[in-house]
Amino acid sequence: MEWTPIWLSLKLAAITTMILMLIGIPLAYWLSRRSSWLKVVIEAILTMPLVLPPSVLGFYLLLSFSPNSFFGRWLLEYFNLSLVFSFEGLVVASVIYSLPFMVSPVKSALAHLPASLAEASYTMGKSKLHTFYRVQLPNIKSSLWTAIVLTFAHTLGEFGVVLMIGGRLEGSTKVASIAIYDAVDNNQYHEANMYSLILFAITFVIVILVFVFNKNAMRGPLE
């Protein structure tokens, strides 16, 4: 059994989760503030990956990233970057695909936090950024963990989008979920079983850790 697909899956999930923490948390904060029509439309777009078949999303991303498209050509000309059949492409696709898993729990938790908490901080002269890091974020810790775990686990198990964008290039885009599919396709059930067991074990350990970490929280970490 090759370990590269497992390593690639973990690397992809870790990079995607880190990028989504940087993008998704500020986005969730913005969405949790007073609602507007623009926010409703943006939130609907962000939620689309939850309901769209992964192959549909993967197909449109493939068209967008292709060197024949305006965006793909622009990336290639100005950055010498091709997102089709590359690890970088997998990262971009995973960020789009897993975005709602980071944004939704954080946005919901921020929206349910009493407004008076932040207001109390403002009246003490603290900026919005200071208030966010010292008051709001620490008080949605369990939801934040939920978002991080869901994003990581969801990216780890990605198949449809990854297959459409990355194909199955050994060492660069053939992640564990595709390795399982390939092994089954070639009647290598023992190998498929090994990959599956490892993915199962990694995911189980992560979820257990979150439950242990949040054992004193009022709600379960996945609520």
């Binding site: 008076s116 207001e119 109390a120 403002y122 009246t123 003490m124 002269g125």
Partner: peptide
């Protein structure tokens, strides 16, 4: 509110 810095008991 940050500039006013009024003490507020909610």
């Amino acid at each position: 509110p940050q500039e006013r810095k009024a003490g507020f008991v909610f």
